[in-house]
Design a protein around this nucleic acid. Sequence first.
DNA 1: AATAAAAATTTGCGCGCGTAAATTTATTAT
DNA 2: ATAATAAATTTACGCGCGCAAATTTTTATT
Lengths: 343, 343
Amino acid sequence: MGHKKIRNMEEFAAVSGLSRPTVSKYFNDPDSVRSSTRERIETAIEKYDYRPNIFAINQNRKLTKNIGIVVPYLADPFFAEIARKIQKRCFEAGFWPMLFSAHGEQQLENDILDGLRGLRPAGVLLAPLGRASDRAEIEKFTRDVPTVLFDSNIEGIGEAFVGSDNFSFVSQTVEYLTRSGEPPSFFEMQTPANPNANKRRLAYISMMERLGHEPNVIKVKGEGWEFERIGRDGALKILQERALPTDTVLCSNDRLAIGFLSACYELEIRVGRKEGCSLRVASNDDHPFAKFTSPSLTTAAHDYDSVANGSVETLFELIESGGRFSKRTETLYPAKLVLRASA
Amino acid sequence: MGHKKIRNMEEFAAVSGLSRPTVSKYFNDPDSVRSSTRERIETAIEKYDYRPNIFAINQNRKLTKNIGIVVPYLADPFFAEIARKIQKRCFEAGFWPMLFSAHGEQQLENDILDGLRGLRPAGVLLAPLGRASDRAEIEKFTRDVPTVLFDSNIEGIGEAFVGSDNFSFVSQTVEYLTRSGEPPSFFEMQTPANPNANKRRLAYISMMERLGHEPNVIKVKGEGWEFERIGRDGALKILQERALPTDTVLCSNDRLAIGFLSACYELEIRVGRKEGCSLRVASNDDHPFAKFTSPSLTTAAHDYDSVANGSVETLFELIESGGRFSKRTETLYPAKLVLRASA
DNA sequence: AATAAAAATTTGCGCGCGTAAATTTATTAT
DNA sequence: ATAATAAATTTACGCGCGCAAATTTTTATT
């Protein structure tokens, strides 16, 4: 309480009755000093509320405790949710996670990486913008900073990739929809920002062919990250023109589906598998709001926990391996089909 | 390209043909050196891709360029959206914004503030958890770090508060609903996490009394940040028990309303002002997804840009004022009523 | 009690920069 | 051209800590 302010580790070591290097050792790894010493330090911390200057630490340490987390668009609840989980895990492991969003802009993604480089992070978890990313810049970055990509893969970049298995998503939804009704059309953006969208389209086509059906891809106009609006506008157009070739639609992702459902409601088209419904809509992701759409959305769910934990674990391994893996690994988690009211 | 790596400012000054203090001066304020010198430095930066070590800078500077942004729950799109805007403005102003989410937990909020303190940020923008916040800890923090509260106020804490005027929200929705139909009941959580909820309830009661109607507050069970689920479960219960005293409901916030609408859909209760609708639902916030609910949500909209810009501007003023204001100010922005299909 | 092992200490250097005072050089005004 | 001003330089110190090597003290083993 009424103690004099401790200004640095020297003074703190003095009041603890220990030498500065010993205290320094403690802060680097509390288990590296004997337990009696550890207790003395910890009571002194309580008493004097001292903590080492983080800038001085990081200036001298070879490896900082910083971890960068970069997502393409934080206002997308999918990324918010996964970033939330990742950040929490990093905190618990004693790291200092710093979260950034590129807001869909290449320039900002580059700036963030540039700023991050200066922080000499122990590692970075990067979900790149995808198509809009500056591949060369990211590659340059990963040469300096141990990086694990997640969610959206860029071939050959980063020490590892952790994400979801798009084929598993689409194969389950297509299989289910086909089994329980008409085979679906596939609804997507014309120029998707995210490479997962391309994988999903290909998975859809391949699944349809395997099941002996004609694939039917519907591409709607739109760019950027306002998926709901794009989905809604595209669906309104197609539904009004009666250009929908099937009574079943598989949306590339939940945010498009949210827009699609909104259009259906507006046009008074009943969606679902109940009596009186003329359309079934399913999707992929299990967006946090998919439970609360009208009707609630049948979708293939990301294994959020596995992707978040897998990314973090992979990064920790990478850090412990000195920042390089001998071989770039790709870890894909399968989806879980979640049946709700919409299909 | 094929130049040797510059290791520090000393070396960089050498290849620029300048002295280190001059270069240092440039990095602190590019306009503080003569333009010919500035150009020499800037071409050298291009050529050698040098940037000063951020830890060494911050260790010695009185004031860092770090800005902390702390929100209570980042998976809430409202906070994601406002954090996005704030972070962008900080970047543009040459600061290094660091975004953190307390994930609804007091312990984590305290830990974040504790970690932030060590980064000696020039300033912090804090949207506290509210009821769950550790008032004493936050107050202690604000004594060390110049802090502007936003979104959710704690009386007397921080140098300023910037947020939305809850009375403006509720008065507009209540006035509109009353004018265009039956006066609304007010739908909220029993123990709201956020102090804005309390202000909204009081505003509702006062508006109803002013208009000569009996206020009717419906409180549903639930704690935490899963507002949609709480709204849905609460609405299901009340609607099934036919315990709704009016045909018009004003939800405390959009996330509750999203849950409410989901319950209505499930129970096949048509919501809106169109023919054949038996219920009107309105709300507050203009959540990013309010446009895409079924039906789309009539709501009082935050002035997102004003709140984001206002917070940032206030913080910048605070920083320029040396971290203290002579008087704590509170800036409240009014809502804009957005009429959609639900009411 | 003697010995080995572990922990703590002392000593001393280095990190990359900010900053202040005194001095020199370059620019502008008269 | 001379003086006045502005800009750049030199010199020197400090920030708070990491880290390594050599030494001393404490703890564990037999």
